[in-house]
Structure formats: C-alpha cells, structure tokens
Amino acid sequence: MSATTAETTPAKPTPPAKRGYLGMLWADKFATFAAIFLIIVVFCALFGPLLLGDAASGQNLRARNAAPFTLERGFLYILGGDALGRPLLPRIVVAAQNTIMVAAGAVAASFLIGATLGLIAGYSRKILSEVIMRLADVIMSFPSLLLAVIVLYILEPSVGNLIIVLAITRIPIYLRTTRAEVLEVRERMFVQAAQVMGASTFRIVFRHILPVILPTLVTIATLDFAFVMLAESALSFLGIGIQPPEITWGLMVSQGRQYLTSAWWLAFWPGLVIILTTMSLNLLSSWMRVALDPTQRWRLEIGGKNA
C-alpha cells in the first residue's frame, strides 16, 4: 500500500481529498493504530452498556480483586475483578459511554464557545472584546475544581451537569488562544490583502483566519480531552464527581487507587485506557495537522518510508 502511494503520487497529482486520506493514514502507522483504537472506543461507548451492562454490574464477592490474565472465571475476568468481584473488562467497556460523553461533551462545548468568543474578541477590538476578556478572567481566576465542587453541590453530580461544569472551566483556554492567534494572523499579509480587496469580515474570519489557527486549537482540544477525563477523575478522587453505581474510567481509577499496592489492576487498566485514548487522539491530530497542511502533506504522500 505504501509502495503504491509512493509510486502513484508523484506521477499523478490528484487532489488528496479524493483518494489520499486513507492512504495517508495508512502511511502513518501510529495514526492507523490510533484511528482503530478510537473506533473501538466509540463502539464501546455506543453499544457497551447494551451488550455488557449486566455483566459489568454483577457482584461476586468471591471473585473480589480477582487477579488478571487467567481464564479460570471466564473471558470476562481476563483483566481481573474489582473490589466487589465485578469483572473489569466489561466495566471498562460500559464505562466508556459516560466517560466519552463527559469528555467529548465538555471539550466540544468549550471549544465551540471559547473559539467563537475568541474570534470575536480578537477581531472586534472594541468594548465587546474587553467584556469577553474580563469574563474569561473571571472564569480563569475561579479555580476550576472549586467551581466544579460548588456547582456540583448545588446541582447533583450527573453526566449533564458535569459536562456543563467542565465546559465552563475550559472555555478560557480556547478563548485566549484563539484571540492571541487572531491578533497575530490578522496582521499577516494575506489577511490584510483580503481586507484591502474588500472581503467581508465573515469571509476573512472563516476563510483566512480560522484555517490558520485551527491546528493549534485542535492540538489543545485533543490534550484537553485528556485534561477533562483527568479532571473528572480528580473530582472522583475528592469524592465529588460521578457517583456509583454510575461508572466512568476516572471513577474506576479513583476507586482502585487504594488498592494500588495490593491489587494494581483495579486502577491500572482504566488508567491505561485513559492514556491510550488521549494518546490516540493526539497521534491522530498530529497526523491531521500534517495531512491538512499543504506544505507538509508530502511527508505522508511519499509513503511510510519517512514515518
């Protein structure tokens, strides 16, 4: 596959959007792995509770902290059992739903709101910009965990409320980054040229500015995905956040932490899944950064030799 890519591309410069993306993905083995892993995670999030919901909540005190890597109790116990003897593998699969919902929801909401406000603040340079920036200051100087605790004490710690809380606390980072980038990009030659040629503000923002700042924002968003999952887990550590019998990966890590020295697998597997998910997102995003950037694309198009 990589060989064909290498042969065909120089000869026939078709636009990569037509045929190249899968090929380019294949060219980056890390990105391929990441994509496959994320597809599995999304599948678990969508169908996990449906398929394994019962297995994940069935308690069995005799299988308490059952050790991993043995098929003695059946395949579901391959990763071991938790403190109530519930098999870890199905629990991780089922927990994907809440975890991904919280993380994706919070990241998407804060990304959209933050970037929009940032564009406005960066481009308008008027009172509006001031108001937005002061708002960001208020949120930013409000310690995120404290805000989360206060809000979750007033509301109850459900998935929806958790998304709201985490989204609010993450808005400033998108807002400030976007604004900073806009301030820089709008002074560049091509934007000023567009302005001189009478392009509308809307067009300038979406055709000229957004594409330039998007890679940075996507990089932050992928890392924020990790941050949000970890913040959710820190809330669990402090005894707030999602409460049992609901499960998330963060909650599993936090509940398993007290067994770190006696039954490491309780905290290790969900922790590993968090790490793998965030890493996959990041690998995919750096692949995307290259694939979407016309000046970098050749790295992938000449095949896997370089990667």
Partner: peptide, 26 residues
C-alpha cells in the same frame, strides 16, 4: 470501603425484590 459496602447492599436488596436507587452523597 463505604462506597463498596453500599453498592453491595444495594445489590443484595435489589436481589430480593426491593427497588433501590443508590445515591452516594457528601
């Protein structure tokens, strides 16, 4: 182990026919 104890009790009560909604609070 409070959370585990209550999770287990909730499961035991559910098993005999109670309709239990476990809530862990601060």
């Amino acid at each position: 182990g409070a959370t585990e104890v209550y999770e287990a009790i909730a499961a035991m009560l559910t098993d005999v026919g109670f309709n239990i909604d476990l809530q862990m609070v601060e």
